[in-house]
Nucleic acid binder design. Sequence first.
DNA 1: ATGGTTGCCCCGCAA
Length: 266
Amino acid sequence: MKIASWNVNSINARLPRILEWFDAATPDVCVLQEIKCLDEKFPVGAFEDRGYNCELHGQKTYNGVALLSKFPVEDVIRGLPGNDDDDQSRYIEAMVFPDDAEPVRVGGLYLPNGNPAPGPKYDYKLGWMAHLKARAEALLKTEEAFILTGDYNVIPQAEDVHNPAAWADDALFLPATRAAFREIENLGLTDALRHLYPYDVFYTFWDYQRGAWQKDHGIRIDHVMLSPQAADRLTSGGVDRTTRDPGFGSQEAKPSDHVPVWITLD
DNA sequence: ATGGTTGCCCCGCAA
């Protein structure tokens, strides 16, 4: 089964391009971030036509996440457990039941950006990461296969950014941010794409400004984190960077600043 | 050192 994540930066502004990618990549499960709309404004029909069950946790203007699955889903959770006073829609989770494999729990997340740091936005980011860590700890105790994937807004290492010095004071790359990410990883989760490509340089986001895409000045911030039981089943993965190219797919819409990441499990 | 882009939606904010 194929599981993907994509920060689309507005589902409605980019729908033609997004659908072309779904038709080409045919993920069984895909979590989306920054849909930037309320649930009732999400183009559910376009995805139901393609066989997806749509679970939404939308928000007007900002944030908003979705979990789309060709397989039945149960036990849908909207919002990070234990973070009940969070008014930003950044987390959705469900148990997925493939017809040809064991169930897997999928959490889709849009971790706060945190800039400017220091400040209240950065405090919110670190607090959110603490809640994510607690969720990972709780799920690990089940000893079940799960994945936590999405836009982490964390550059794990210097290898994951074209110019580390330029990002030294950014909330995505500060030592405290990377330490909080390591705390989660070191619970026993596998960074699937870094695991598959230990020595490669590859990015998932390029700023719209300063010709970042043309110069490949990117950062790796979209991650697929696997529980041990999910890591046992990992068979492949990748980054679909072609979707960032202006020449990809429909010219009716501009590309997102992020590209999809995906893995397959047996 | 500055400025450069995009989406939402009403104009500045978030990224």
